[in-house]
Structure formats: structure tokens, C-alpha cells
């Protein structure tokens, strides 16, 4: 048994957890922001896929990784703006629009990818991000190589968590976001533009979802495949609920899921255990559904979630 533990819990394992958690952290923070302002974005799965495609394509054509990241972020912002146009400006139902955005974005991603790269027997790949060890810190035993010898995007995700918490809880804009999500009527009376704030937040959320997509196709897999996102957007939806719409807890939830996922991959690779790996992949969804039942008693979800705001309606 101890040999098993040694095999599983080593530096590579810790590093793998951090790597798996990164796109989930970006996506979860993006979804969390959006929902804190009262807008559920079910477009996340498609937005991540389309961003992964545009990021990969931009890098593949230009040779520049950062240009790819920029393309992915801009894609995310654009699709966020589209979702906001439908749900915030026009006040259409958020869940149906979100499914529409996901269907549209993933369709567009498949279409454009096939148009640009054709059907190749070996999918084209790029030289993706390389790890960038941080001097001194990466020499810390165990934790150093696991956390401080990673891709730049990983460091960005780690910094994004306290930044998101700071913006949400300590800035006037963050206060507006929370007001708009809890009580848009009061926010409106206080002179906060509900429409403008929601637009800004959904676009910001889209940018973060874009980073998540960029990480998948440009750091984790270095290629775009049709299954590159494979449900990670839905995982993020679950993690936001599981993390009770809080940046720290949501990020923690992403880390916990990454741990379970990494464990599952290790067990599969080493041929250990007889539990099917799907059982692990199911866990975040089951946990979240159960958690929702318990949480509903002390309503922690933003009160105005799913409710469109129209000024003239009283």
C-alpha cells in the first residue's frame, strides 16, 4: 500500500493537479463573475471550445503563442458580448440563450477548423507553452517544482484568484456587480447601470473562459481536437455552485476536482484499483447536485440569477 502511495503522491502528481486545475480555475472564475451579476452563462462550453480553436489557429498561423492567447481572449469577450446582447440587452431567457451560444460557438469552431486545416490524418500541432521555472522559488523541495515550474498561464491563474476576490469584494465596481446580482432594482436606484454592469461582467467572464480554452489547446494538448474541452465547461458550472459563488471557494473546488481527476489518471495509468475511472469523473457533478439540495435552505445563490432586468417593469 505504501508503494502505491509513493507512486501516486510525488512531485509529478502535484504538478499535474495544478495543470489540470488551471483551465478549470479560469473557467470557474469567469462563470462565477457572470453569475454574481445575475447572468447564468451556459455558453461556457462552446465559448471555451471556440477560444481553444481561435487561439490554436492564431498561433499556428503567426507562430506567436501570445498572439494566440490574445485571439482566444478576444473570442471569449466577443461571445460573452453576444450572450449579454441576448440575455441582458434583450432580456431573453438565459438558459436557452446559453445553450444557443454553446451550439453556435462549437459549430463555428468545428466549421472554421475544418475549413482552415482540412481533414488531416495527423492533426496539426503547435509548439505550445514551455514551463518557466521561477528562480529561487522553484528550488523549494516538492512544492517548488510542482507550483513554480509551470506554464506562464498557470501563474496567471494563480494570481487571478486573489485578484478576482479583490475586485469582487474590495472595489466599487465589484460592489456594483454584487448589487446587480442581488438586487438590481436597488442598484438601479443607487445610480448603478444594471445593463452596463452586466454587460461588462459577462464580457470579462468570456475573457476568462477564453483563457481556459487557450490553455487547453496551447499548453495542455498543443493541438485542437473536437474533444479538447469535453465537458470542462459543464464542470465549471458545477464548481461555481459547489464553490458557493465565491472566488476562493470556487478555485478551491477546481483544485479538489483536479486532484480527483489526476488521481483517476494515475490509477488508470498504473493499472491500480478496479474502480472505473468514470466514477471519479462523475463525482463533481454528483457532489454538486447533492450540495445544491443542502445549500438551498440558506440561499447563497445570487438572488437575481436568471432574472432579466427591465427598467420599466416595476
Amino acid at each position: 500500500m505504501s508503494a502505491v502511495f509513493e507512486q501516486i503522491f510525488q512531485v509529478g502528481f502535484l504538478a499535474a493537479i495544478i495543470r489540470i486545475a488551471t483551465p478549470l480555475a479560469f473557467a470557474t472564475l469567469g462563470e462565477m463573475f457572470s453569475e454574481r451579476a445575475g447572468v447564468l452563462n451556459l455558453g461556457i462550453e462552446g465559448i471555451m471550445l471556440l477560444s481553444a480553436m481561435t487561439g490554436f489557429t492564431a498561433t499556428s498561423l503567426s507562430g506567436s503563442l501570445w498572439l494566440g492567447v490574445l485571439a482566444a481572449v478576444l473570442t471569449g469577450m466577443l461571445m460573452g458580448a453576444l450572450h449579454a446582447l441576448f440575455t441582458v440587452a434583450l432580456g431573453l431567457s438565459q438558459h436557452v440563450c446559453g445553450i444557443g451560444v454553446t451550439l453556435f460557438s462549437s459549430g463555428l469552431a468545428y466549421f472554421l477548423y475544418r475549413l482552415i486545416f482540412g481533414q488531416q490524418s495527423v492533426p496539426p500541432s503547435i509548439k505550445g507553452f514551455q514551463t518557466l521555472p521561477i528562480p529561487v522559488l522553484s528550488d523549494i523541495p516538492v512544492l517548488g517544482p510542482a507550483i513554480f515550474n509551470q506554464f506562464t498561464l498557470v501563474y496567471m491563474a494563480i494570481l487571478a484568484i486573489p485578484l478576482a476576490a479583490f475586485v469582487l469584494y474590495r472595489t466599487p465596481w465589484g460592489l456594483s456587480v454584487r448589487m446587480v446580482g442581488e438586487n438590481p432594482r436597488a442598484a438601479d436606484s443607487a445610480g448603478v447601470s444594471v445593463i452596463a454592469t452586466r454587460f461588462q461582467v459577462v464580457i470579462l467572464g468570456g475573457a476568462l473562459m477564453g483563457l481556459a480554452g487557450a490553455f487547453l489547446s496551447m499548453a495542455q494538448f498543443n493541438a485542437f481536437t473536437f474533444g479538447v474541452v469535453s465537458g470542462r465547461g459543464w464542470v465549471a458550472i458545477a464548481l461555481v455552485v459547489f464553490g458557493r459563488w465565491d472566488p476562493w471557494r470556487s478555485a478551491g473546488a477546481a483544485l479538489l476536482f483536479a486532484f480527483v481527476d489526476a488521481l483517476q489518471l494515475r490509477m488508470q495509468a498504473s493499472g491500480l484499483g478496479h474502480i472505473p475511472y468514470e466514477a471519479f469523473l462523475m463525482l463533481p457533478f454528483i457532489f454538486t447536485i447533492v450540495a445544491m439540495a443542502f445549500m438551498s435552505r440558506n440561499a447563497v445563490a445570487p438572488s437575481a440569477l436568471l432574472k432579466p432586468f427591465r427598467r420599466e417593469e416595476r
Partner: peptide, 24 residues
């Protein structure tokens, strides 16, 4: 009905549960 849980998210998340059960 019992716990006032939002049906949009719970029904969506169940898709993934069933998919992985099928894969298993």
C-alpha cells in the same frame, strides 16, 4: 419541488453523470 434547487443547472449536470455511467 422538495429543496427548491434550480432545475436548469441540476438537469444539465445530470447529463454528464449519465454520460459517464454509460461510458463506465
Amino acid at each position: 419541488v422538495r429543496f427548491k434547487v434550480d432545475d436548469v443547472v441540476s438537469s444539465l449536470l445530470l447529463n454528464s453523470v449519465i454520460y459517464y455511467a454509460l461510458m463506465a
